[in-house]
């Protein structure tokens, strides 16, 4: 467990940093929109912040993982072989990792500033600050004794983070969400629109909440609940294809993955809890 906690601490710190970084772009964008008299309100702000946390965040997550993995390894070596060490070494390493990652994304990859919030000096400083706190958080995680629940919780949170994208689509942009499943919302009857929106939205919100409740309570039943719903969707997808002739729909692969993930978490939890 002691070895396993390091990579999961990197992943956790990266997700924590994503949570701090994405609102910087969201807020800088919202401030600009308000400055040109767009009707920015609470709901539109929440929509932008949550969507950015999920969609922009997932793109940033990979970049930050690589940056943190290198930076924290170097910080570990410095800590081991020199007199420097402690929480601020890791915090500075996190800050440098984010600063360098954002520069390299422009200079080596895209040539343009893909991260809107990083176009101003204050935005850059805030991003470095987010990296600093990410490093701080990492050190806190590796300084404590961890057991298997640390990994279960991270995987549960990451699962919920993934599902969050579907939740947001159905809550804020149902027309686009429906189109991704082959529906042209405006062409459906009013009753059909209502049924589609309420059922799909509750489907994704429920599985999101089940996984969050699983993370909080560490009760495997919540993970099993989320898993059963997706496995069920996968099974009935196959029945629809082969018994009702709806045509092949490869979404069942994703449904089985989304079902298996929480079920494995639930099984591990059950096993460990029984053993204990």
């Amino acid at each position: 467990m002691n070895i396993a906690k390091y990579p999961f601490a990197v992943l956790s710190a990266a997700l924590f940093t994503v949570m701090l970084m994405t609102p910087i772009s969201s807020l800088s964008n919202l401030i600009w929109l308000a400055s040109v008299d767009m009707p920015v309100g609470i709901i539109s702000s929440v929509e932008v912040i949550l969507f950015d946390f999920q969609r922009l965040g997932i793109a940033l997550f990979g970049v930050i993982i690589v940056g943190f993995a290198v930076a924290f390894s170097v910080a570990g070596l410095i800590s081991k072989y020199t007199k420097f060490g402690g929480i601020y070494l890791y915090a500075i390493a996190g800050s440098v990792a984010i600063g360098l990652a954002l520069i390299l994304m422009v200079e080596l990859l895209f040539q343009t500033q893909l991260l809107g919030g990083n176009r101003t000096l204050i935005g850059k400083i805030l991003h470095w600050g987010a990296g600093f706190l990410g490093g701080y958080f990492y050190f806190k995680l590796i300084s404590e004794e961890k057991n298997y629940t640390f990994i279960i919780r991270f995987l549960g949170v990451f699962y919920a983070y993934f599902i969050l994208g579907l939740v947001l689509n159905w809550v804020f942009t149902p027309e686009i969400a429906a189109a991704e499943f082959g529906f042209v919302l405006s062409e459906l009857s009013s009753d059909a629109q209502n049924a589609l929106l309420r059922d799909f939205t509750s489907f994704f919100v429920a599985t999101f909440l089940f996984s969050i409740l699983g993370v909080i309570t560490l009760n495997p039943v919540w993970f099993f609940s989320a898993g059963i719903i997706y496995i069920g969707a996968g099974i009935f997808n196959l029945i629809a294809i082969y018994a009702h002739g709806t045509g092949f729909n490869q979404i069942f692969i994703g449904e089985f993955i989304l079902g298996s993930w929480p079920i494995i978490l639930g099984l591990v939890l059950s096993y460990k809890q029984k053993k204990a």
Binding site: T22, S25, S26, N29, L33, V36, M38, P39, S44, E47, V48, F51, D52, Q54, R55, L56, G57, I58, A59, L60, L114, L115, G116, F172
Partner: peptide
């Protein structure tokens, strides 16, 4: 970019508005 039907390449929201 105050109104748009697209989102940014990064996945970020450019604007939550499509009309004004």
């Amino acid at each position: 970019p105050a109104i748009t039907y697209g989102i940014d390449y990064s996945g970020a929201v450019i604007s939550p508005f499509t009309e004004k």
